[in-house]
Design a protein around this nucleic acid. Sequence first.
DNA 1: TTGAAAGCGCTAACAA
DNA 2: TTGTTAGCGCTTTCAA
Lengths: 336, 336
Amino acid sequence: MRRPDPSGRPTIVKIAAALDISPSTVSRAFTRPELLHPDTVAAVKAHALEVGYVPNQLARGLVSGRANAIGIVLPDIANPFFPPLIRSIQHTAHESGLSVFIADSADDAGREQELIHDLGPQVHGIINISSRMASRDLQRLAESHNIVLINRDIADMSRVLVDTAPAIAQAVEQLTALGHHHLAYVGGPKASWSNASRSKAVIDAGRRHGVIVDTYDTRLGSYDEAWEATHALVATGATAAIAFDDVMAHGLLNGFAARGVRTPEDISIVGCDDTLATKTQPELTTIAANLDETARTATNILLAHRGRSRVAATRGVQTAQLLPGGSVGPATAVAR
Amino acid sequence: MRRPDPSGRPTIVKIAAALDISPSTVSRAFTRPELLHPDTVAAVKAHALEVGYVPNQLARGLVSGRANAIGIVLPDIANPFFPPLIRSIQHTAHESGLSVFIADSADDAGREQELIHDLGPQVHGIINISSRMASRDLQRLAESHNIVLINRDIADMSRVLVDTAPAIAQAVEQLTALGHHHLAYVGGPKASWSNASRSKAVIDAGRRHGVIVDTYDTRLGSYDEAWEATHALVATGATAAIAFDDVMAHGLLNGFAARGVRTPEDISIVGCDDTLATKTQPELTTIAANLDETARTATNILLAHRGRSRVAATRGVQTAQLLPGGSVGPATAVAR
DNA sequence: TTGAAAGCGCTAACAA
DNA sequence: TTGTTAGCGCTTTCAA
């Protein structure tokens, strides 16, 4: 493997020397071509292409104090909810000529804080998805960093939220109409705003319709925890379960099946996030939002804030929709 | 939102001035503390912590010509095979104080080439996973970039391969022992080395055991394509299908089910990659490798090559294992 | 429309 | 063990 020695890589100065013009002119050909004579721009670009010139983003960034990049900080890349968001953020950033750093905090709030602290000063801004940090810590970081949150609602911070409450209310309403009087909410990660928000939505809707709502907390919000929870759930007499997300709903589906409890005949299940709804049997009834739009909005807010201080915080909301599948049915008269 | 103005952020020079020492001493306190008097190091670190100093990676990188970062380039972040790899790479890099850029080529070889070309010069190296590029283009890029491939086998380039061939041979052997004489391989992405390698493994093993092997090509290797393929498959008389990956195996499973073909009673299915094997019904028989190890190996090779030119190419192999599930059973005597 | 020169924050010879 | 100095590649005043 051969790599050019440091002096081999084309630079603005070398291009300038080759064309017998000044380095600033070469620089302007890329950054402010409208200031230059079109012929000059053309000549520079042609030569640059020929020698394979790639602008050194480090040197560029050193002047402005920021790399030509943004960062994404999230709890766990492997959760299927995140990759589509990452992809959209990356594509949006790429359109603005920005690269994307990614950092996975392994569900650890301390690690998350450290990552933002270290990465923050190097980039134009950070999109922090499903943050596990305490609000006051986030607010403190926001004093010195450009941060946009996704699925975390903190006053005075810019954020884009996927609002699942209306769809959850609708799901509860449909369930009660189908004769379900005893629901369970199987919760996700403790420190997750989405979980708090969904939990509240189920409880509120349950109260409005006068039905019982049990809440099952989990530590991580994993498939396995949901699967295990079915052991306790079968004993309670609940006829419908709303899960934090599709992964957990899938755990419920399979856990119940392993115990001989059929979906939707014996138990109705509602998921969330639409990560694999159409792939289960029966297909999950779930709740979906436009994640592409969510990601683009967050990225655009971030870029709008870039370099400016004292920007008013923005609050964007994407309302999620209930997607009927085959995992919801009428409550059975027979108590189990 | 308040962000420090450019002059507000602490720098090495400011710390040096405050402590009345030279900037190089401050620099060394972070990079080569063993050269300094312990008291000096302590004083610098204490002050740095107090004023919230974060080293400017851009300036650091400008000197060496490379950012303190590596890049990951892959076809599609949302494919469940990749996120665990990304996570491991990121954690390994973090241990070496490196950040990670991520770039998704949207399955487009041209885009991939562009991403490597633009990102390459800025980083210590690039891990290119499941590359879709032509070999000669990759080789050309490797002349001027530090690249480590995962799941792409090109002579003279460093690479880490997940070898699924032995496990596939074993699967074919088990299937024939169970009376299957007509197999189908449902292929993945056209430009994928893994697909070519798996396809060949199935065909070779089939030949050795004297059984028929049909091959079904797809464009993207998606769940939907696999689902659709079951329409054609039911007519062929094949009693077992080996899919490119678990996502496609899942598509087969559900597609067959929708057509009243039961797994494993009527059809046996083998997946690959272990992305959701335990979550299907029945649980998929699949093929798994140690991805964590794969990612660490690739990252370590990359870091070992960093900054050095003319390094001998390394070829690492992770051998995948067959994981028996419930989706394989004896061939039925009844032809469908 | 172009050029000259200073400087972004840091590291790394070289000197002391 | 610490200081001095030059310079990484680029942008950006200021001047022409």
